[in-house]
């Protein structure tokens, strides 16, 4: 079951939770590749305790780079047809993957992005909620693609999309780059409701809101220098 699907999990300093997250995913999906993006803690050791494939970045390059590496590793499997990006910090639920994948297959789409705003949001702060709404508006304006949760790390896409993707914004802006890629290559996309759990642990690790400035900057330059 799910032999033609690969779960891609970028990891940066998640030694406390990564083993449990991986084991949860592995209960359902046999093909999991964990890209360790130059963690300074024992994430790699923890990953090796599981049956997940481990790819170590020699230097820290960013979540976007880690996802691209994971995709290229998974593409080596000629039988791989579906690819799923999934967060390492326990914010996502494994149970959300299968329905999202089914939705993609059933509607013959190229990519489905999970949305916490279509599903449940547990414990989100008012500021963060407001902030995500602004991010959504920004995405809509710049990409003309109306997605309620563009920065959601849970995405399911097919091989065609995976092979065409070449993430060059190696940090957190990759999320916007993926949406831009959908727009420029006219891929068939949709969203699907997923649950995002804001635990004390994941709140500490979350993207700082100031990062939005970096993302806007990088996306702007990337957009106008795209060859």
């Amino acid at each position: 079951m799910y032999k033609n699907s690969w779960i891609i999990i970028p990891v940066y300093n998640e030694e406390q939770v990564i083993k449990d997250v991986l084991n949860d995913v592995l209960k359902v999906f046999p093909n999991v590749v964990c890209v360790n993006d130059g963690s300074s803690d024992d994430s790699a050791t923890e990953i090796k305790k599981t049956k997940a494939h481990l790819v170590n970045h020699p230097i820290n390059m960013g979540a976007g780079a880690a996802i691209q590496t994971g995709i290229e590793f998974a593409l080596q499997d000629k039988a791989a047809q579906y690819f799923v990006t999934f967060d390492a910090d326990g914010q996502h639920k494994v149970e959300d993957i299968a329905p999202t994948l089914k939705y993609l297959q059933g509607n013959d789409l190229d990519i489905v992005i999970g949305s916490r705003f279509l599903g449940e949001v547990k414990n989100i702060s008012k500021i963060k909620s407001r902030f995500l709404q602004v991010a959504k508006l920004f995405n809509k304006i710049t990409t003309k693609i109306d997605i309620t949760d563009p920065h959601n790390g849970l995405r399911v896409f097919n091989r065609k999309f995976a092979e065409s993707l070449d993430i060059t914004l190696h940090g957190y802006a990759h999320a916007s780059e993926i949406v831009e890629h959908i727009r420029s290559q006219r891929f068939k996309y949709d969203e699907y409701p997923v649950t995002v759990l804001y635990t004390d642990y994941s709140l500490k690790k979350g993207q700082p809101m100031l990062n939005a400035i970096n993302i806007v900057f990088d996306l702007f330059f990337n957009r106008i220098t795209k060859k």
């Binding site: 890209v35 494939h53 481990l54 790819v55 170590n56 970045h57 020699p58 230097i59 390059m61 780079a65 691209q68 590496t69 290229e72 590793f73 080596q76 060059t168 190696h170």
Partner: peptide, 15 residues
């Protein structure tokens, strides 16, 4: 970008 591509190649070969 070149650095990232290089590092990625190394990472995948090693894996």
């Amino acid at each position: 970008n070149k650095n990232v591509k290089l590092a990625r190649k190394i990472a995948i070969i090693e894996a």
